[in-house]
Every structure is written in C-alpha cells, then in structure tokens.
Amino acid sequence: EDGINLEEIREFAKNFKIRRLSLGLTQTQVGQALTATEGPAYSQSAICRFEKLDITPKSAQKLKPVLEKWLNEAELRNQEGQQNLMEFVG
C-alpha cells in the first residue's frame, strides 16, 4: 500500500529490537533520547508499538528512517565506548 514495503519494515522492527537490546538500552531510554531530539512522536510507547508492529504502515514508514539513523549513531558511539553511548542517550 502506498509503495510501503511491509516486509522491509517487519525485518527492520525485528532487527531494531535485537540491536537495541545488544546495546543494553531500554525502550524508555530510546524514547527519551528521541523525544528530546525529534519530539513526542518518538516516545517509549511509540518505540514499543513500532517493535510490535502495532502501528499503521504509514506511521512505521515515518518512524523507520529516524530510528535507523539514531540506532546507527548509537552503535557508532558504543564502539567508541560505553561512556560515549550513555552521553549520546543522555
């Protein structure tokens, strides 16, 4: 629908959760960090719904690039050390 690749979103949601957990981050931490930079659309409950795919494809499509960018950045910081990650997450 609307050129939205559901399979891709499903895959990303699954990987997002795995990668988030491997960084040792909670949904709350991700939500707080993103709410600070991106606004309330990225709250803990939004992250939770995204991971469960309990949102419309359109919403998922909107969240995905922001979550992807944030997660990549978080992983980079983590490679530089846990301290850097925690500063990034705030």
Rank of each mutant, 00 (worst) to 15 (best):
E1S: 08
E1F: 12
D2G: 14
D2W: 04
D2R: 13
G3Q: 15
G3F: 15
G3W: 14
G3Y: 12
I4Q: 01
I4G: 01
I4N: 13
I4P: 06
N5E: 11
L6T: 09
L6C: 09
E7Q: 07
E7C: 03
E8L: 04
I9S: 05
R10Y: 10
R10Q: 09
R10L: 05
R10S: 06
E11P: 01
F12T: 04
F12E: 04
K14H: 09
N15C: 04
N15K: 14
N15F: 07
F16C: 03
K17G: 03
K17Q: 10
I18S: 15
I18R: 15
I18M: 15
I18N: 11
I18Y: 06
R19N: 00
R19G: 04
R19E: 13
R20N: 00
L21T: 11
L21H: 09
S22Y: 05
G24R: 01
G24L: 01
L25K: 06
L25W: 11
L25Y: 11
T26A: 03
T26P: 00
Q27T: 15
Q27W: 00
T28M: 12
Q29F: 00
V30E: 01
V30P: 06
V30A: 05
G31R: 03
G31T: 03
Q32W: 07
Q32K: 07
A33P: 04
L34M: 08
T35A: 13
A36R: 14
A36I: 04
A36V: 07
A36S: 08
T37A: 13
E38C: 11
E38A: 12
G39M: 01
P40G: 07
A41Q: 13
A41W: 05
A41C: 08
Y42K: 04
Y42E: 02
Y42T: 04
S43I: 07
S43K: 09
S43R: 03
Q44G: 14
S45W: 02
A46Y: 06
A46R: 04
A46Q: 11
A46G: 02
I47T: 00
I47Q: 04
I47L: 05
C48A: 15
C48L: 07
C48P: 01
R49F: 00
F50C: 00
F50T: 02
F50Q: 02
E51V: 03
K52G: 11
K52C: 09
L53P: 03
L53H: 07
D54T: 11
D54A: 09
D54F: 13
I55A: 07
I55D: 09
T56H: 12
P57E: 15
P57D: 10
K58M: 07
K58D: 11
S59Q: 15
S59N: 12
S59E: 15
A60W: 08
A60K: 04
Q61G: 09
Q61K: 13
Q61Y: 08
K62D: 14
K62F: 10
L63N: 09
K64T: 08
P65W: 05
P65K: 10
P65R: 08
E68V: 00
K69T: 07
W70G: 05
W70T: 03
W70P: 06
W70Y: 00
L71H: 03
L71P: 02
L71I: 15
N72F: 08
A74D: 01
E75M: 00
E75A: 04
E75D: 07
L76Y: 09
L76G: 09
L76E: 12
R77M: 11
R77Q: 09
N78F: 15
Q79W: 05
Q79G: 09
E80S: 12
G81F: 01
G81R: 10
Q82M: 09
Q82E: 13
N84D: 12
N84Q: 13
L85R: 13
L85V: 10
L85S: 11
M86S: 15
E87P: 10
F88T: 14
F88E: 15
V89E: 13
V89W: 03
V89L: 11
G90L: 07
